[in-house]
């Protein structure tokens, strides 16, 4: 047995090397931009333009980028308008993403539950058509909506407000949440709820005590995905916000001044902006996978 396994393993050795080689290459391609962003935040102009890559060998890292946003060790204790600006944008991003995602998950789950459990008729449209109608909203390029939203928000006095942004982002991620959650609810057998009804639950308590806990991993996954999408959104944020409700992506983009691009401060900002996503990616990825691989219920 043992020798057999060993010979088998040995015969697969070359394939393994190739597979691992390809994986390493792919990981390198994926991680390089992140590395470049973080390393650039420690470079000065010369190092950026000359393409120096390896700290302490190619270039001597310094805090220039981080100092410009008031986040370097020597500036962190002092008052800094740049840092205040950054923190404000960061806060906007956090609040807009989290609130919009929470709203979308609540509204979207309710809609998805309805679509999964009851038969609707809306003119000639049945459940399937309604679901597709929701998803079809994603096909529309945002540019088409730019003018209408601008006019609408101006009328409603929602321009440059967090509320406006939250509402818009909710709308933006709702189709995806509905789609994910409908899939989740579809995998939960109807008999489970019926058993709960017989066991003494009302329709609502059956939903809250039985359906919701089972669908929770899916909800978490939908929430995380929504947060990521909202966090990265640029177009509408640039269009509808200015001094008050501006978000991080807009601030990062605005670092391209008239004297050229401030690579170091832009890199520092970008690094700060993607850090939350990296944390999500590393720590919560398994929840996303678990939630999206249906069939958690058998």
């Amino acid at each position: 047995m043992a020798t057999q396994a060993r010979t088998l393993g040995a015969s697969h050795y070359p394939t393994r090397i190739i597979i691992y080689g390809l994986l390493i290459l792919w990981a390198f391609i994926c991680l390089f931009p992140i590395y470049w962003t973080f390393s650039t935040s420690f470079k000065n102009a010369v190092n950026v333009t000359q393409g120096h890559l390896i700290p302490w060998m190619d270039f001597v890292p310094d805090w220039k980028g981080w100092r410009s946003v008031g986040l370097s060790p020597d500036t962190i204790g002092q008052t800094s308008t740049a840092r205040e600006e950054f923190l404000k944008r960061f806060e906007n991003s956090v609040i807009a993403s989290l609130s919009a995602s929470a709203l979308a998950v609540i509204i979207g789950s309710s809609a998805a539950y309805g679509l999964s459990r009851f038969s609707y008729r809306f003119g000639p449209m049945r459940n399937k058509d309604i679901s597709f109608f929701f998803l079809a909203q994603l096909i529309l390029p945002p540019v088409v909506l730019a003018m209408p939203f601008l006019v609408l928000y101006k009328e409603l006095a929602l321009l440059d407000t967090r509320i406006g942004l939250i509402l818009l982002y909710t709308l933006m991620v709702l189709p995806i949440v509905i789609w994910i959650m409908r899939d989740q609810f579809d995998t939960i057998p109807l008999e489970l709820e019926q058993a709960a009804l017989v066991d003494g639950c009302s329709v609502w308590s059956a939903f809250l005590r039985i359906v919701l806990p089972i669908a929770l991993p899916g909800m978490v996954a939908a929430f995380i995905l929504s947060v990521i999408l909202c966090w990265n959104e640029y177009f509408f944020a640039a269009l509808l916000t200015s001094t008050n409700a501006k978000t991080l992506p807009v601030m990062v983009a605005s670092q391209t001044g008239s004297q050229g691009i401030n690579w170091w401060s832009m890199a520092a900002l970008s690094a700060a902006a993607i850090t939350p996503l990296i944390v999500i990616g590393i720590f919560l990825e398994r929840y996303i996978v678990k939630g999206l691989t249906a069939g958690s219920v058998k």
């Binding site: 057998p189 489970l192 019926q194 058993a195 009302s202 089972i214 219920v297």
Partner: peptide
């Protein structure tokens, strides 16, 4: 009458156990 008010106990053909 709602199922919960009928005071019945039922065993389902496919068990319907609560997975969580």
């Amino acid at each position: 009458l709602e199922p919960k008010d009928r005071d019945i106990a039922m065993v389902f053909q496919n068990y319907a156990l609560y997975p969580h």
